[in-house]
Design a protein around this nucleic acid. Structure first.
Lengths: 342, 342
DNA sequence: ATTGGCACTCGCGCCGGTGGAGTGCCAGGA
DNA sequence: TCCTGGCACTCCACCGGCGCGAGTGCCAAT
């Protein structure tokens, strides 16, 4: 029982500190939360919590603030994910339904996530390795110049310019187009790349234009760099972190510019459907101690292939944030899934 | 002559203040710049400059800082655009050459501009109204579901999903494809839209699938919303503005989230090839007093159709920034031009 | 018109005092 | 064994006063 109350005290401290941004004292605690005990009792509890390294006081005779470890415990055992309101759900739904293509879905999701959490939102592009080739279009821009457009089942479109050594007439281009399409349409990306490579060695003379086009296509198919793209939104929410300029704001701004860093942040979140919370120095980017990352995987179909999440100060509303992250991931998965299969 | 020296003093004040970020006094001025006069003389000049509203002292017995009006004069009459180093030019060139498509050119440009100026860079997408339709591809994803891909001469690709009321077989799709292509390929966007509208009323029954596809295409052709897209980079440079949190950083973060605001910032810059400088409250966004905007137009061919630039604190290195903005715009125009015509 | 001299002003940083919030501890009571 | 009220204590945040120094404005001399 006493242990239980102690945890209740921890929860109360976290909640109060998150909302007031100020160290919280024993008296304020008993007043604001209806724990049926006296401030003195709470003080004793706080002493224990401090010994366990869950809370910490900036200086003697100040209130307590949660440590990273305290937040950790709070998230793991105390936080009840607070469900979104019906209005919020409706907003998410209608906002995302309006998207016209994959880019748009991603853009809208970041925005949404940033608004819901009032944090900086990060969304990785949907990963394509599971998607198939829908169509390849070859257009002659000039006799010696082709535009190759690769259309994937996910709705993603890749385009590449090809310079040829020699000219090609319409018939040859048409020939090439149907040849390539026959080889790859309906295939997974990896398989398609293999099929093309075979096409190159088997059918075409090494010096022919097919070779060049096929080469470019193989590149485009194997090029996962666009999977690695990350979109960021809600940077304006950084403006709320007036304090912690050097501990939070500066490192975040720097991190947000570096796609690589962002990918590392999202990186380990793609396992399973759960929401991952990394608090303070637990993260892979040491400059971002002082911040927390809430991520989850998403993706069309059963696989969780890509990731999204938010970055914010350790002092944040975890239950609310986790709920929002999870919700956006689910809606996004659903939308992508529909586009993919329908 | 005395008037000349007074301007030299203003120039010196601007330069010193920009580099030191501190109010500059008479003594420091004569030391750091080789004006061959005594501090007292400079003080007299400063008194005059202050009366003219070109400089201003935060409080009695402090150094002077330039006013917006002072910067204005500096930019208009004193700033000699400093040419980029050969190394910088080479860097720009090689960096932009590596781009694979329009999106990539834009992304690389923002990055480049941010690095060169150490400010927040803003690049508007190239405007398409001058470009022509290269090809329209219609792919059947399912009997009742089409993917329409619009390929433009600028290299831009637009895609739209079309849901049909009834099913369509391969032959019908092929028919539709060639019909549409015959109508629009080679046309400017506006003209193409008209041609399509005519196609709809003339040839197809109103309830046929053509009608739906054509409708979507007309939308896509007339939809200039992607022209309105703006890409931002170098936000990490905001971290240098430790001071002026409320006057510079917060409003900028907010502005950067709003595409509309950014477009207003770039908006008036597309006339002619000159670099436009808007200082402090001169700009169209009143929250951004305290910041300056350096923009210029760019575009393939002769027309300046789109815009790019940077946003930073009024206290910035105008000559260097202007040079960088101009250079990036030129290189970008060149690259787009090559892609367009070759 | 320029210059050196000089008194003056004002912000910044330092210092010590004060008020108050919050603590730790203890002794008494359930 | 746990809770509670009381009490002395600690330490920060705030405030006003003070000296320093940078930088000015003015003036008389050249």
């Amino acid at each position: 029982m006493v242990e239980e109350r102690r945890l209740a005290v921890l929860r109360a401290i976290v909640e109060d500190y998150v909302s007031t941004e100020e160290p919280v004292g024993s008296k304020a605690l008993v007043e604001r939360h209806g724990l049926g005990v006296s401030p003195a009792t709470v003080r004793n509890d706080m002493a224990v919590l401090e010994e366990e390294g869950l809370i910490h006081q900036p200086h003697t005779s100040a209130g307590r603030i949660p440590t990273d470890k305290g937040y950790r415990l709070f998230v793991d055992r105390l936080g009840t994910v607070k469900p979104l309101t019906a209005a919020e759900k409706r907003a998410i739904s209608t906002f995302l339904e309006g998207a016209v293509d994959v880019d748009d879905v991603v853009r809208r999701s970041v925005r949404l996530l940033a608004q819901l959490t009032r944090q900086v939102a990060v969304v990785q592009y949907p990963i394509l390795s599971q998607s198939t080739v829908r169509h390849v279009e070859v257009v002659a821009l000039a006799p010696h110049r082709l535009l190759v457009v690769l259309i994937l089942s996910s709705g993603r479109v890749e385009q590449r310019l090809v310079e040829l050594d020699r000219d090609l007439d319409e018939a040859q281009v048409g020939d090439l187009r149907s040849q390539v399409n026959r080889a790859v349409v309906g295939q997974r990306l990896g398989v398609a790349a293999d099929a093309l490579a075979r096409l190159r060695t088997d059918e075409a003379p090494a010096d022919g234009p097919t070779s060049e086009v096929v080469g470019v296509l193989v590149d485009a198919l194997s090029d996962h760099s666009s999977d690695q793209r990350v979109v960021v939104g809600g940077t304006a929410n950084l403006a709320r972190f007036g304090d912690g300029f050097d501990t939070v704001l500066r490192p975040m701004l720097e991190a947000l510019e570096e796609q690589v860093v962002l990918l590392r942040l999202l990186g380990e979140a793609t396992t399973g459907g759960a929401v991952t919370v990394r608090i303070g120095a637990e993260g892979p980017v040491e400059e971002l101690a002082g911040t927390s990352v809430v991520t989850t995987g998403y993706g069309a179909g059963a696989d969780m292939l890509s990731a999204l999440g938010i970055v914010g100060p350790t002092r944040m509303d975890y239950p609310g944030t986790m709920a929002a992250v999870r919700a956006v991931a689910r809606y996004m998965s659903r939308i992508l899934d529909e586009n993919n299969n329908a």
